[in-house]
Design a protein around this nucleic acid. Structure first.
Lengths: 228, 228
DNA sequence: TCTCTCATTAACCGTTTGCATAATGAGTTT
DNA sequence: AAACTCATTATGCAAACGGTTAATGAGAGA
């Protein structure tokens, strides 16, 4: 029995792959869709209620599926959270581009333009995906296993990139001098707070921080403050 | 019976007050101490785990008292949270002084000095009481009754003060031009993020954001960025 | 067509949650 | 010293929690 299976396997596999290319498996597609729906709901719920304040049942209900599916797809609450965080940082890496264009280092105006572009890019990212900062802020106010994991897996890397950027801009006189860690947190805070706290902004200032014009004026202000 | 009580009341009251002045009631003192301990624990736990992530039992255990005392002193979880937030904003009001000194408006250097003082004061407040921003950030990422109450009761007021300050400084050329709401959130974010996310800062940068020298260099950087 | 697979749901377990009520006993009053 | 007040604890309850197991039934493979 074992041997026959071994002999059959390759041919069957090839056939399966062919069929999937031509007429993709309905079941497999649905499965991926369900997984994505759960992950998306997890992002929403975790980012609004924090890890401990979110229940797997709420997440499942938000996704419109039975809560047992969370165990089926993600093993447990903790793994689901890690999957959500991984998704966030991988999406950020794919959407943000820190590489300086070759021309940017030649003239002072070129360097300033590069700095402006980075800040603008980052603000647009924060406005496009406010759940990223929301989720991470809730997790970074206290030290625990999840923060340690997130730091080792993602935050250290992105922080090093940001540090490099700040030091480069300071060296070239485009950004004010001062402690690099402080400068990084100031920049990040100044860029994301407006969208992270959007519900407060709406209630207190009666403006929509996600409105195109509002975003643009925020970008202008951020650039005016941080870039010389 | 009602009448006799009415007649007795004044004399008894006076006697009680006299005794309390000379030898303050041990029980009353203990009561106030217990209440304060619970409120303090609530601040700690709420600010680290968010409202929904905090259990009244955890708060009671943190305070070293039975959880039924929370109902006794604060009625329920919601009221305890409101009491904690009230405490935070009242303490902030008592510790922060936004009034510009008369001399500050005469010379440009005077105005800059005033702006520097405000920023410095606020950073020191954030470093002294990181739980304030932690608790409020967790509550402001989504809209609900608690945020509405906090906004109406405190946030609108403090935001108006901050707005006034920003507009004044912009008018006098001490701070860069740009949208006032954006400028306020940028300043606040740049000032508090470093302390709100202290556990992350420690893990990622291997520095203690509450170290005196680190605080001072943060203040320097903040002033260098926002003040012209 | 008829199994068989497996994505999904139903039902259940032990624990924790917010909250309510009753019991207790140290401190105050008379 | 006895009676009383009230700050504190013990106990109980229904709901919600994370997680597990068994049942189900629509789609895939033979």
């Amino acid at each position: 029995m074992k041997i026959t299976k071994m002999k059959k396997a390759p041919a069957a596999k090839i056939k399966k792959i062919k069929e999937e290319i031509v007429k993709p498996n309905v079941r497999a597609l649905q499965k991926e869709a369900t997984r994505a729906t759960i992950l998306n709901s997890a992002l929403q719920v975790f980012s609004e209620h924090g890890y401990e304040g979110s229940s797997t049942r709420d997440i499942a209900a938000h996704a419109g599926v039975h809560h047992a599916l969370i165990k089926y797809y993600f093993e447990n609450k903790d793994s689901l959270w890690r999957a959500a965080v991984s998704f966030l940082f991988e999406r950020q890496a794919s959407e943000m581009d820190f590489a300086p264009p070759a021309a940017s280092t030649k003239t002072r105006e070129g360097r300033r333009e590069y700095a402006r572009t980075i800040l603008r890019q980052y603000v647009l990212y924060c406005a496009r995906h406010p759940e990223h900062a929301r989720l991470m802020v809730q997790e970074s106010v206290r030290d625990n296993d999840r923060l340690q994991w997130a730091a080792d897996s993602f935050i250290v890397q992105t922080s090093r990139s940001a540090e490099k950027f700040v030091r480069l801009m300071q060296r070239e006189g485009v950004m004010p001098q001062g402690s690099a860690p402080a400068m990084v947190y100031m920049m990040v805070g100044a860029a994301q707070m407006f969208y992270t706290l959007a519900p407060e902004v709406r209630r207190v200032w009666h403006i929509d921080p996600f409105d195109k014009n509002v975003i643009e004026s925020h970008i202008d202000a951020l650039q005016a403050v941080f870039i010389r």
